[in-house]
Design a binder for these strands. Structure first.
Lengths: 173, 173
DNA sequence: TAGCGCATGTAATATGTTACATGATTTC
DNA sequence: GAAATCATGTAACATATTACATGCGCTA
């Protein structure tokens, strides 16, 4: 996922590895963060694949290596962004894509969000099924983690339904 | 974290690697899951460290390898469980520990939850600070991921405050 | 007898972090 | 001139997944 996030950042402007790390700290750190030890090798790989290109520069005495996204890189980025995501509490890829939705036409964003909401509801239904099975033999705390899961799914479904409404109202009626 | 979860499962009864995987699917899969490819090597490591011991058996023709937790394993488990966790949206260790809180005295659980709620509120405050910085130059979608973060933190704080109340009322007044 | 579910395990691969190494400039 | 910040990069390590290999018993 890191490589796509880097491509996403470079979609907006050319940046150095250091800049990307800074940007992450001020924007995606809440749901996705990476260390220099993964960012620099990722940039190297992306350049080897011909998705980005580097330009070395010296700015106020400091050596900096700026990366620019190439056409092939943009293509790669879109083919990733375009695919709707399912809910997953482990990898929060849905938030990562949401972060870059400005690059997707509004109709596609709406379709993505609708798909995602359905996926959250599916997840909720699975937890409801699970509850029936374990309700009796789970202790208070084990049961509480399940309740948390269900309450969180309800929260998320509601939150994204609201986001969908906001987007629709913005241009619609 | 996987090794502690395995110890946690073995705290309740002796199990095989296959059983552990099954149990996870029916309980922790919502916030933590592992594959056979990580469970079996983890069991091997735990036995090498002297934290668990295996017993081979043949049940209805099927070869099974049961693992039992040793005193040293219980010690390790408690020294992990005992440490209060901070909020992290990436690794949901808080839910993993919550799952095993039955092994902790109620007073410690309450202290843990209070610590956790504070940590969630700290996180929320950081996001509020961040909002001031980026509010103007972030697009709708980028801004929405931040709002999601804030709304989620509020939800989580409320949810855990409620859990704390429930626990207090159960035995208290 | 073919296929599926049970059951264990390894090897290749992916992905990331932490610590280290280097060296410049800015700030106190 | 010491310390912090800027800036890049590598090596060792941690942790996990996926795919594969093996073999038993049950069922159609």
């Amino acid at each position: 996922m890191l490589e796509y996030i880097i491509l996403g950042f470079l979609m907006e402007c050319s940046m150095s590895g250091y800049d990307i790390k800074q940007s992450m700290s001020h924007s995606t750190a809440n749901f996705f963060d990476a260390s220099f030890g993964s960012i620099y090798p990722a940039l190297k790989r992306l350049e080897e694949k011909g998705l980005i290109i580097s330009k070395e520069a010296v700015e106020s005495g400091k050596y900096k290596k700026y990366y620019e996204i190439l056409e092939q890189g943009k293509k790669e980025f879109f083919s990733w962004l375009e695919v709707p995501v399912d809910f997953s509490s482990l990898k929060q890829e849905y938030l990562v894509k949401q972060f870059f939705y400005i690059h997707l036409p509004e109709e596609k964003v709406k379709a993505h969000l609708e798909h995602f909401i359905e996926s959250v509801k599916d997840h909720l239904n699975k937890l409801i099924e699970l509850e029936k099975l374990i309700k009796e033999h789970a202790d208070v705390y084990k049961y509480s983690t399940l309740r948390y899961g269900m309450d969180f799914m309800s929260f998320a479904a509601g939150w994204y339904e609201n986001l969908l409404k906001e987007i629709s109202n913005k241009n619609g009626g």
